[in-house]
Design a protein around this nucleic acid. Structure first.
Lengths: 155, 155
DNA sequence: TTGCAAGCTCAACCTTGATTGAGGTCAAGC
DNA sequence: GCTTGACCTCAATCAAGGTTGAGCTTGCAA
């Protein structure tokens, strides 16, 4: 017997992702529903979890490209097992750990800075730019990558 | 005597923010240099610190609009004092604290989820969407705001 | 069998945070 | 006074992550 499938509208209602976003992410390769003879999309129940993962990962600031990479580790052709999801969730956790560490580091430096109010480009540790893209997520790029010139006693 | 001023190119060199970005942020109201008789921008030395703040705040995921609000608390007409900067830095710290708390919460829930691999929309705490925009920063909007339908035992 | 919500494709548009280019001006040094 | 690099404005473009609308088709149910 054929597996139970759901329509795009049903998937949208169950996950909270809009119909247009579901189609958008399909075009990006994150979803691959099969089609009816009339060309309508039909999703597996396991796609609910897949979309859930996408939403959570976005919530953590991952780009569609990154999510795509993470999802690539899921099996093709077979419904992912809990173990598959646990493995991919572990990747998420590593991202989270890194993001928390970065922010904590920044906060500690800021704590040291508040007293002096310096924000100095040459002394202030807040200019650690190395792991900038850790959690800030999608959107425009930032130009914080190059070393800055010296600062000679601003007002 | 007139205060020492610097050109846009000098400010760019000192802060690491590109000339085009400096003009962009001026259009957004974050900077307000005066002009020479020949219509060229001239910045105060204290603008170096102002730009520094913008760069740091962006690094923390704040949008230009949010940064603008924060900077609005700085004095008009007089050069900001260290105390002014300290006050504004305290706002940054509050954002950081909130972001760290949010991510830590998410990680804790994820820790609980990895074992079961559920990612269930109805049981999984990862769907706490309340403070979603805390640190994810600028970019497209997300449609994670509305309650989702029930999920009846997916595959 | 017909009516209509839900589905389809494709192109255009939106927002944020910029960069790039065209075409022209300013100002400092020789 | 001339040259040249830095500066000016304004419009177009980019990238991500979508949304919206036009025009057309499916599929379920009465």
């Amino acid at each position: 017997m054929a597996p139970v499938t759901i329509t795009i509208g049903e998937l949208a209602a169950r996950t909270g992702m809009s119909v247009s976003a579901l189609r958008f992410h399909e075009a990006r390769g994150l979803l691959a529903p099969h089609r009816t003879s009339g060309n309508q999309r039909r999703y597996l129940r396991s796609d609910i979890r897949r979309v859930s993962f996408i939403l959570i990962a976005q919530n953590l600031g991952m780009s569609v490209a990154e999510i795509s990479t993470a999802l690539a580790s899921l099996p093709h052709g077979r419904t992912p097992t809990p173990a598959d999801w646990a493995a991919i969730s572990t990747q998420l956790k590593q991202r989270l750990d890194a993001a928390i560490a970065r922010l904590t580091r920044t906060r500690d430096v800021l704590d040291g800075c508040i007293g002096c109010g310096c924000l100095s480009l040459t002394h202030c540790g807040l200019y650690n730019r190395d792991d900038r893209a850790g959690i800030t997520g999608p959107g425009p790029r930032y130009a914080l990558g190059d070393p800055v010139a010296t600062e000679a006693g601003d007002a």
